[in-house]
């Protein structure tokens, strides 16, 4: 299969897989590709979802450029993208820590994995209680150190970081489990060889372990980036986009404009969705490209 396939003629070896792919491709077209096209199309209209759609060309996009709420959302998306990546080293650290044989290690592992199992809604609720301005645990702790109590989710500067911190909790657990599986596959002979050459501590980690964890790191990177871009439920539960819109991200803003109680500006919402899609596309293209590169490298 490693030779070029372009000269092949139609034969069962080609047509059978194509036939098997057909239902998947059809549904992918129906539920993913066509809606993307529709989103692009609707973003050129002014439409409330009920009446006649009015063609407005690029006006929705022009307005986006002036829209401060959009700017805030975009910046928050960037914060999510950057800070969410902390889940990867944190997950790696916990995985290394848990990758030992002690009595009851399975229990510890499952405890660390627990936040990923519970629903995001519950995570959001727990954290919003944790942050409560008067009764919350966070303020109970910091006031014992003589600091002023803070209202994390009520402060337009801090709120987004507060929500991201809540999101990092389950995401770290996710990365941890990826690394734990990865660590199982680390070749003991290479570690032994490294040890004979005098590598230990950080050098061992950096030069021997991490290179073997590359597939796990790649997956962790992919799921974390995607997780950051689709952050929605935590924001909806913890702050509802507030205070005064300071914790919105693009997906939440799109929902508000297009589908929420005060929304139904389908064209404007679609324009936001298109921007979000283009941002995602950059990452997706990168992922696909690096996967393709790996596969090619694997073949030769």
């Amino acid at each position: 299969m490693s030779t070029a396939t372009s000269t092949r003629r139609w034969n069962p070896q080609i047509t059978t897989p194509l036939l098997f792919l057909l239902p998947g491709v059809l549904f992918f077209l129906l539920y993913v590709i066509i809606p993307i096209g529709q989103s692009f199309n609707i973003s050129f209209y002014k439409w409330d979802g009920l009446g006649e759609a009015e063609w407005v060309g690029l006006r929705n996009y022009e307005r986006l450029m002036q829209d401060r709420a959009f700017e805030v959302s975009l910046w928050n998306n960037m914060k999510w993208l950057v800070l969410y990546l902390l889940a990867i080293p944190a997950g790696l650290f916990i995985a290394l820590f848990l990758n030992q044989t002690v009595t009851g290690i399975r229990l510890y592992k499952s405890l660390f994995f627990f936040p990923f199992v519970i629903s995001q809604v519950v995570v959001g609720l727990v954290f919003s209680w944790f942050y409560l301005p008067r009764e919350g645990l966070l303020n109970a702790v910091i006031t014992t150190f003589g600091m002023e109590p803070i209202n994390v989710l009520g402060d337009p500067v801090l709120a987004t970081y507060g929500v991201i911190a809540a999101g990092l909790w389950p995401q770290t657990a996710y990365c941890m489990i990826l690394y734990l599986t990865g660590l199982n596959a680390v070749d003991p002979e290479q570690i032994e060889a490294g040890r004979l050459d005098g590598a230990k501590g950080w050098r061992m980690l950096w030069h021997i372990i991490l290179p073997q964890l590359r597939p796990a790191t790649f997956i962790a990177f992919v799921v974390t980036i995607i997780g950051a871009l689709r952050s929605f439920d935590l924001i909806s539960i913890m702050t509802n986009g507030g205070p005064f819109g300071s914790t919105r991200v693009l997906s939440f803003y799109m929902f508000e404009k297009a589908l929420s109680e005060y929304g139904f500006r389908m064209g404007y919402g679609s324009a936001i969705a298109v921007v979000l899609f283009l941002i995602m596309l950059v990452f997706i293209a990168y992922f696909l490209w690096s996967m393709w590169r790996e596969e090619r490298a694997g073949r030769h």
Binding site: L132, P133, R134, N151, L153, G154, G242, P243, F244
Partner: peptide, 11 residues
């Protein structure tokens, strides 16, 4: 300005 409303009401 009088402080008539409770604190942290945005939460």
């Amino acid at each position: 300005d009088m402080g008539a409303f409770i604190d942290d009401h945005q939460t």
